Amino acid sequence: MTSIDTNGSFENNLNPNEPAEFWGSSWINGDSKEGGVSIRGYEPIDGAYHLRLYNGVRDEKAYAYTLSDPIPVTSGQKYDISAFMRYTLPIGSAEFNIIEFDLDGKLISQSGRNINSGDGSGIVILI
């Protein structure tokens, strides 16, 4: 397996900004207010921080999204990808996706995991 660690614990926020490095694209759909993506220090899984996606208030059907910067890989190599995702609301859902593109931006594959009606315990995602 080839190892790539691009700030997996969100500890390396090199600039005093949000979200953490490598997670620069984020947005909210719907008619929500006060939502967004941010670095938080309460209840981290590992280290001192976690990345919080919050859909805000006023539109319970709104979604918060964040997209990592592209992570370069080498063709023919195998990679393990893992993450921990915790969803605490009793309704709705959360989803984690891996989306692969070629050098021309053409979609190669997409795979993901979904959590519905979370209890806060979370799941470890291995893709």
Rank of each mutant, 00 (worst) to 15 (best):
Y87M: 07
F96V: 06
G30E: 01
Y63C: 12
S111Q: 14
P90W: 00
G118A: 01
A94I: 00
S38D: 08
N55K: 02
G47S: 01
N114S: 15
S3H: 13
D102K: 00
L103M: 11
Y49I: 06
L126R: 15
N17K: 13
E60P: 10
L53N: 03
I127K: 12
F22E: 10
K61L: 00
N116A: 14
S109H: 05
S75G: 14
I81G: 03
S68D: 04
N29V: 04
A20S: 14
I127Y: 15
E95S: 13
S25T: 15
G112N: 06
N55R: 06
E43K: 12
Y79V: 01
P44L: 09
E60S: 11
E43M: 08
G120C: 03
L14M: 12
D119S: 11
F84E: 07
R113P: 00
G120P: 02
K78G: 06
I99C: 07
S109A: 13
T74G: 09
G24S: 14
I99M: 07
I108C: 13
G35H: 00
S68K: 05
F101I: 03
N12Q: 13
Y79E: 04
N116L: 14
N29Q: 00
N55G: 02
K33P: 03
M85W: 08
P16L: 04
S82H: 11
F10Q: 00
D119F: 08
E18H: 13
L53P: 05
D5R: 04
P72K: 06
L67E: 08
N17R: 12
P90Q: 03
E100T: 09
I45Q: 14
R86T: 05
H50G: 11
S25K: 15
I123M: 13
Y63I: 10
E34H: 12
I81M: 07
S38C: 09
H50T: 10
L67Q: 09
G24F: 07
S9L: 14
G8I: 05
K106D: 13
S25I: 14
N13W: 03
I4P: 02
Q77W: 11
N116D: 14
F84S: 06
S38R: 08
I98N: 05
S9E: 09
V73L: 14
S109C: 07
E60A: 11
I99K: 09
Y63T: 04
D46G: 07
E18C: 09
Y54N: 05
L126G: 12
G41I: 03
R40K: 14
I91R: 15
Y63E: 11
G120V: 01
E95Q: 15
N7P: 07
D104V: 07
S121E: 12
T88I: 07
L67K: 09
K106S: 15
W27R: 01
G56V: 01
L67Y: 09
E43A: 09
L51H: 00
G47I: 04
